[in-house]
Write a protein that binds this DNA or RNA. Structure first.
Lengths: 196, 196
DNA sequence: CACATTAGCTAACGACCGCTATAGAATGCG
DNA sequence: CGCATTCTATAGCGGTCGTTAGCTAATGTG
């Protein structure tokens, strides 16, 4: 019992459908993406969507998780792989403009703007939590560098982390407004100059 | 003809109602603010709202205009009143954290996030245009300082303007996430360090 | 007073929202 | 085959969206 393959098999590729949902949420945000939009884009009926993904909120949560792994996870990668916090910041600042303006993908960042204008408090809180987690991770790496003497003793870790992530939010928003990659790269080059 | 006071007089204060509408749009954005929300908050019926302000889009446009004069115009003021672009940036960076976290007012900035998540292309384009205008105004002042030798010859005016305004977008978003004024002030203090 | 003019109220329109009951189609198992 | 199980398609639920028609109320003008 609790067998694996009983009954009629699913007639669509769940992963491919999820990827399409990710792009739709990415482009329009949670609120402006309707279930009808999703069923149309995914090429499936509403009941199939609900069977496969739960409800709209659960689908969004899963989209967020996969987005963060596949598209938005470059921040965690930089924090993990670079030796110093400043090198991580430099790498994030170098990569973000391209990430936020990829051809064939929506501009900006789902985690920055996905909850924009939704009255759904749970969705907004979820995204805020993800953003806060990223700030905290950056602050941790900064603190480690302060402790090791890599960064000056007076450095305000939390504020420098907020600075860096706010800068990313800002250029993600600019990307949505149509600012080009090369210009965003000039902006982040300036931004790195504020680092101690 | 085209007389001033004919017919039944309006039973509510139009300016006060507009101010309430501004705050509602500011808090929730264009899309998430329904006409019903507005009529409830403004204490008037829907037909009165439509008579006094046109439709929802026109009301939003008027809210934007007045917001920019009363709440968001500190950027233009700084550009006009400060001698140098850097002094203007310093003033904007000093003022913005308080502006974005005023007690009794919504957090963040209507012009930054008012169009968030709306499928209404006209509304989005309108706000984008306002944002672009502000970037351009900043870039103009930077260019003047480059011409006068106040700023180094190699300074990228457009990018420095984008940097400054993206930083403001970023902290406006952070303010919406609940980051406090004092922390935002530390962030903008860091941000000013990137200026030449 | 009668009348034109303007505002307010009730109620509703058609369209869309997220979601689902119901019935039929496709599979594995016996 | 017959049957349980699982997915799909149609159609529609109750609710909200922005907006407005139709009527009443309140004003200035004659």
């Amino acid at each position: 019992m609790a067998s694996t393959t009983r009954g009629r098999p699913r007639s669509f590729d769940r992963d491919a459908a999820l990827d399409k949902a990710i792009r739709l949420f990415w482009r329009r945000g949670y609120e402006a993406t309707s279930v009808r939009d999703l069923t149309k884009e995914l090429g499936i009926g509403a009941p199939s969507l609900y069977k496969a993904f739960g409800d709209k909120r659960q689908l969004f949560a899963e989209a967020l998780r996969v987005y963060d792994e596949e598209y938005g996870g470059f921040i965690e990668a930089a924090l993990a792989e670079e030796r110093t916090a400043k090198q991580a910041a430099a790498r994030v600042f170098a990569e973000a403009p391209a990430r936020y303006t990829r051809r064939g993908l929506p501009a900006g960042c789902l985690i920055v703007s996905g909850d924009a204008g939704t009255p759904d408090a749970k969705v907004a809180a979820h995204l805020r939590h993800i953003r806060e987690t990223k700030v905290a991770a950056f602050a941790d790496k900064i603190r480690a560098d302060i402790a090791s003497g890599e960064l000056p003793a007076g450095t305000e870790a939390q504020s420098l982390a907020h600075y860096t992530m706010s800068m990313l939010s800002g250029i993600a928003q600019a990307a949505r407004d149509g600012v080009h990659r090369t210009e965003l790269e000039r902006v982040t080059r300036i931004a790195l100059g504020a680092w101690p």
